[in-house]
Each structure stands twice: as structure tokens, then as C-alpha cells.
Simulated assay, not measured.
Amino acid sequence: MMQTWKVMALKMGELTVEKSTLTYNQDFGQSMVIPMWAVAIYGGGYNILVDTGIHDAQWVRNHVAPCSQEDDEQIVTALKEGLGWGPDDVDIVINTHLHYDHCGNNKVFKKARFIVQEAEWAAAHSPIPSQAGIYLPELFDSVDYFSWNFVQGDAEVVPGVKVFPTPGHSEGHQSVLVKTEEGRLCISGDVANLLVNIRENIPAGILTSTKDIFSSMQRVRQLADRILPGHEPSIQKYQTCGFPSLK
């Protein structure tokens, strides 16, 4: 029988945003406080990290949105307190995409190999104008180029952990499918910022393609039993089970 994995949600701070940036053409004028999630995958012979949070809360406050971050919401401290890991214990980093809040601490993981869609790498270095301010090349170019694995489409990372393209929020966005004891869990990144996106078929507000994100959300529903959305407030810090059902 194929190995099952454990997962842990690691909170990387909070943003205060206009809700309409999360729910397409809805909720204008409403503010919302949202968490930023990284996720550890462990218990199957490899230590895997999905996304790495923000690099500097003050930079976020100055350039994007109001931001708060507790001490244990910084990636190194979160990994130590949640799992007892140091940076060199991480074998694989999967970036769902390369926006600033998903790859901010990539450079910390000197011994890891990094996995991203080739289309996202290209888009990050030549973004559409509306996304130029949320790609910071120094956050991903600081990783040794030879540590990157550029994938095209569906790819098995290790047995029981796969990535699959979910474009729409960004051109090369991918999500992660993990075999767990509770079924197939999708670590969605921002194809679903919130649970309401995937349950009520409401796209995110920040998009490269509205058409693509509808198709991507449908693929998530087809593949996954449960979901851990990229900015869902109902998820708890260090949560390891009981993630929201899609069935």
C-alpha cells in the first residue's frame, strides 16, 4: 500500500485586505483579515514544505497591505515549534506560485530542491503589468538555479505527493495533492484563497485568467477529498487533520 503522509498548517502572519480581491466581483468595500499559510508534509521519508511565507512584514505593510506577524509565524520559528525542524531538515520546497507571500523565505532552505511549474518561472520573470508588484525576483532568484526543478504539468514529487497545474490566479500556478489517512488533500495555494471560492465556484479577485481559474477549481474538486486553501481563516495554526471536505 502506498505511503500516507501527515500535514501541518504553518501560519505565516495575517493580511488585512479588501475582500473583493478574494471574491471576484463581490464584497466591494469590505475589509477582511486573512492568514497566510505554508504547509509541512512529513512522515513518509521526506520533509516537504509547500510555500515559505513572507520575507519581511514591514515590506508588506509598505508596499501591499496592513500585515501582522507573531514570532512563531516566521518560517524558521514555526518549523522549529511545530515540527522540531531546522532549515537544513527540509528536503523539498514546492512553490504553488512565486508571488511574494508564497516564496518569501525560499533562500533559507539551502539543502532543499525546489519545485515550480516552468510556466510560473517564466511568468515571474516577465509578469503581466497587474502582477508586476507582487513578484519580487530577489525572492526566487536568490535560490541556487541548480536547485530548481521546473515541471510541466502533472508531476509526482514522491510517492503519495503530486503537483498539478491550476492556472488562473497566476499563469503557472500549481496545487499539491497529498495522500493522507483522511483521503486526498489538496494544498490549493491561491486557486482557492478561501473555502467559499471552491465551494461556491467564486474565483479569486486577483487573476491572470478568469476562464482558467474556473477550470482549475473544477480539477481540484475532481481530484481532492479535502482542501487547505491558501488564505482560509477557519484553518488553525499547527492544524494537522480535519481539513475542510469537498465531498
Rank of each mutant, 00 (worst) to 15 (best):
K107A: 15
D88C: 12
V151K: 05
P203S: 13
K111M: 12
I128F: 10
H231G: 06
Y42I: 08
Y135V: 00
T23W: 08
W37N: 03
N193H: 15
D101A: 15
C186D: 11
P87H: 12
A57S: 10
A224T: 11
I34W: 01
G133Y: 10
I94R: 01
R61L: 03
K11P: 00
H231Q: 12
D88W: 12
N106S: 08
N149G: 08
G45V: 10
G104P: 03
W148Y: 15
G53C: 03
T166D: 04
F114C: 07
G189L: 08
V64S: 08
N105P: 09
I198A: 01
M36W: 07
T96C: 14
W5H: 10
E171Y: 13
E182W: 00
A224I: 10
I235V: 13
M8E: 03
V196K: 14
K162Q: 14
V17A: 11
C103R: 00
T210A: 10
H99Y: 13
L228F: 02
T52K: 04
L98N: 02
E18K: 15
E120G: 00
L10K: 05
N47Q: 14
H63R: 10
S216V: 08
F109Q: 03
P66C: 05
P87E: 13
S209K: 11
C103I: 03
V39S: 07
G43H: 07
I54C: 06
A38Y: 04
G189P: 07
I94E: 02
T208Q: 09
F109A: 04
S216L: 07
L15N: 05
R113H: 14
W85G: 05
G183F: 05
R113L: 14
Q58F: 13
I54Q: 01
F243H: 09
G183Y: 05
P167I: 06
P244Y: 05
L228W: 01
V158C: 11
Q222G: 07
Y42E: 08
W5V: 06
S68R: 14
R221E: 05
